[in-house]
Design a protein around this nucleic acid. Sequence first.
DNA 1: GTATACAAAATTGTATACAGAAAGATATAT
DNA 2: ATATATCTTTCTGTATACAATTTTGTATAC
Lengths: 230, 230
Amino acid sequence: MAKSESNVDRIHEKLRQMAADFAFKPDQRINETELAISLDASRTPVREALNRLVAEGFLTFQSGRGFSCRPLSPQRILDLYEARVAIECEALRLSCARAKAEDIAALAEYLDGIEPEYAACTDVNALLAMDEGFHLALAELSQNAELMRMLKNLNDRIRYIRMIDLSRMRRGENQGNASPISAHRIILNAVLKRDALQADIALRGHIERRREEATEAVQIAYSQLYVPVD
Amino acid sequence: MAKSESNVDRIHEKLRQMAADFAFKPDQRINETELAISLDASRTPVREALNRLVAEGFLTFQSGRGFSCRPLSPQRILDLYEARVAIECEALRLSCARAKAEDIAALAEYLDGIEPEYAACTDVNALLAMDEGFHLALAELSQNAELMRMLKNLNDRIRYIRMIDLSRMRRGENQGNASPISAHRIILNAVLKRDALQADIALRGHIERRREEATEAVQIAYSQLYVPVD
DNA sequence: GTATACAAAATTGTATACAGAAAGATATAT
DNA sequence: ATATATCTTTCTGTATACAATTTTGTATAC
């Protein structure tokens, strides 16, 4: 049988999800014993997984005080969005230069396929998954594993904010924006034409429009995270 | 007294240095007990540090077979150089837009100051430190902590290859290249003029010239790493 | 009411023990 | 000689114990 996945991997995966969803409140200390019990393991593998999350930028670690969730500041989120622009735009440039025509075509076809689903979808998580999926597939055209790795990490870390932003957008609270799906179309068309400059402008604009709303989303995030439980 | 640094941090730092220097041979399994003894600690904190290095991209981990050093393939190195272009060029673009004039001036002055030292220096490690120092200082002008974080990680991971490349360059084995120091000058002048396009072209060219030699450096790296110890 | 000192409880940091898996060695059969 | 099976050794994975540290709670003084 195929038992290649380790326990630490499983715990790490689970904890990363929790960190992405802010199951740990910002700046709150994480109780290892409690966490270990809830994950049905001992503290040893849990701490190993927590250490990975520190290296991935989700948590902080202080001697004698253990692990805590990194605080969520507007500045940090802006930094992450800028980093995302860096990664995605360079990947796009590389894609224009070297992506296989059939791979681009396949992505275009995929985009056509999910368009109706996207337009009709009301579940924010599903929407977000589709959006992330497109951006990842786009980056994958660059055939650069390291850029992919970095982008996945960034995605995990801004997912919560994007979710808030996306749900606001769905509720029509920020009118006057072109639909993301048509923005995706425009970007991909530029890649098809191997027009790196056009593609860069379109993608940059697409991400930066979202970034502008990020600060506001951080405020909302805080209010959601600290809703009284009563 | 200030005893804020933890033992795991110390071990992690040490191991990262070892990984950057390829003290672990590529694909070779790492013996935890041996390592723990040599670091004067038990396996527990050592494994925690090793897990961080996995998340940072230095090592791999397989269930039942522990940790091993990631192999060093030409493709991976090219990916890392491309990622470096992504990070540094975006940082540069941001710097042109928002760096404080006094900070740019300070970096220019610093560059003037070390120029003679750089030209005279024969120690490859010192040279590399100066080179990395400039690039990091340049990126810092962007005031983006995440880009800095990513760049530091990339630097650690390609340091060994850069060292080989730099030592070859010093020995004059690849003639016809402009001196890196004058390339640095050109880039910084473009930032001073807030000319993002010019800066981008100069920096991109500067890094890509190095990248072209990277594949060759990987070959040399292997031959150096597997030299018989007799 | 605030501050300080000290005791008690909770939590982290790490060594160690041991079960289980992988790798290596040895023997046997073809 | 090669392949297979079995035993032995080594190394990994994780629970647990305990020391060290930090936090919390309480009492006392001002």
